[in-house]
C-alpha cells in the first residue's frame, strides 16, 4: 500500500524518539565513564578511568568471578538440558508427562522462594559462601528452562533423519551427539545466549550466598561499590560500563537469538 511521504516521515520520527530514549541512559553512563572527575582537569576522553575501576574498584576480580560462574552455569545446564530434552522429546517412558509438568512449574518459581531456605540449609552444611551455593541454584533454574526449550527442539526434529541414523547402526547416544546436536545449533545457541544473560545479570542469588568479597559477581560488586560512593562519579560509571559490556557486546552480535529466545521463552 502506498503511504504518503509525510506519514512515512512521522513513523520514522516516532521510532527515532523512542530509540533516543532507549539509548540515552546508556550514553550517559558512557559519557560519565569517560569524563574527568577532577574539576579543571583537561583532556577529553579519560580512558584511564577503566583501568582505575579495574584495579582500585576491583572490577577485574568481580568480572573474573562472574566469568567462572557463567561458564559453570551455562556449561552444566546446557549439558543437563540437552540430555533431558532428548529423552522427553524423542522417547516414551512411564511418568514422562508428570515429570515434565513438574519441571515446567519449576520454571515459574522465583528465586525468592528458594534462596532463603537454601541459604540456611547450606549454612548447616558449611556450603554458603562457596561457588557451589552461587552456581547450583542457577544451574537448577536454567536446566528447568533448558529442558523445556530443548524438548521442543527434539520433538520438532526430523524423524526420518533419526531413522536413517538408526539404520546405519547408530545408537541413541551417537544419534544425539553426532546428528541431532549439530543440527540443533540454532536452538542451542539461543538457549546458551539466554542462560548466559540471566546468569550474568543475576543479583539476588549471589547477594545472599556470597558473603566474601572475593566471591562477588560483577553486578554485586557494582552495587556495593555504588553504596560507597556518590553516584555520577567517573569511576562508578566506568565500573558499570565494564559490568554491562560482555552482555551488550554479545547482544550486538547475536541479537536475533536474544529477541527470539525472550519472546518464545516467555513462560519463564
Amino acid at each position: 500500500m502506498m503511504i504518503s511521504r509525510g506519514e512515512r516521515l512521522a513513523n520514522y520520527a516516532v521510532l527515532a524518539v523512542f530509540a533516543v530514549l532507549a539509548v540515552y541512559p546508556v550514553l550517559l553512563i558512557l559519557q560519565t565513564a569517560l569524563s574527568n572527575d577532577q574539576i579543571g582537569g583537561g583532556g577529553s576522553f579519560h580512558f584511564e578511568n577503566f583501568a582505575d575501576a579495574w584495579d582500585q574498584g576491583q572490577f577485574g576480580s568481580y568480572l573474573r568471578t562472574s566469568i567462572i560462574v557463567a561458564v559453570l552455569v551455562v556449561g552444566l545446564s546446557t549439558l543437563f538440558s540437552v540430555l533431558a530434552g532428548y529423552a522427553f522429546g524423542t522417547m516414551r517412558f512411564r511418568g514422562s508427562e508428570v515429570l515434565f509438568y513438574v519441571i515446567l512449574l519449576g520454571i515459574m518459581v522465583p528465586a525468592e522462594a528458594l534462596v532463603i531456605a537454601l541459604y540456611f540449609d547450606l549454612r548447616e552444611l558449611g556450603l554458603t559462601n562457596t561457588l557451589v551455593a552461587i552456581v547450583m541454584p542457577q544451574v537448577a533454574q536454567s536446566t528447568a528452562f533448558g529442558t523445556f526449550w530443548m524438548r521442543a527442539y527434539f520433538r520438532g526434529s526430523s524423524r526420518e533423519v533419526v531413522e536413517a541414523a538408526r539404520l546405519d547402526g547408530a545408537g541413541h547416544w551417537t544419534t544425539l551427539w553426532r546428528i541431532l546436536v549439530p543440527m540443533g545449533r540454532p536452538a542451542l545457541t539461543t538457549m546458551v545466549v539466554l542462560v548466559f544473560m540471566w546468569t550474568w545479570n543475576e543479583f539476588l542469588i549471589p547477594l545472599i550466598m556470597a558473603t566474601d568479597e572475593s566471591l562477588r559477581t560483577a553486578p554485586l560488586g557494582l552495587a556495593f561499590f555504588q553504596g560507597q560512593y556518590t553516584s555520577g562519579t567517573a569511576l562508578l560509571a566506568a565500573g558499570a560500563t565494564l559490568v554491562a559490556l560482555p552482555v551488550v557486546v554479545l547482544y550486538l552480535f547475536l541479537q536475533r537469538h536474544f529477541i527470539r529466545g525472550m519472546v518464545e521463552g516467555a513462560v519463564k
Binding site: 540430555l83 533431558a84 532428548y86 522417547m91 516414551r92 519449576g106 547450583m136 537448577a140 533454574q141 541413541h172
Partner: peptide, 23 residues
C-alpha cells in the same frame, strides 16, 4: 513421541537430580 525406552531415565537423571536438590 518416539519409542519406549528405559534408558530415558538415565538421560533425565542429572536434570532431575539438580532440579530436585536445588528447586
Amino acid at each position: 513421541p518416539g519409542e519406549p525406552r528405559r534408558v530415558a531415565y538415565l538421560y533425565i537423571l542429572p536434570a532431575l537430580l539438580v532440579f530436585g536438590l536445588f528447586v
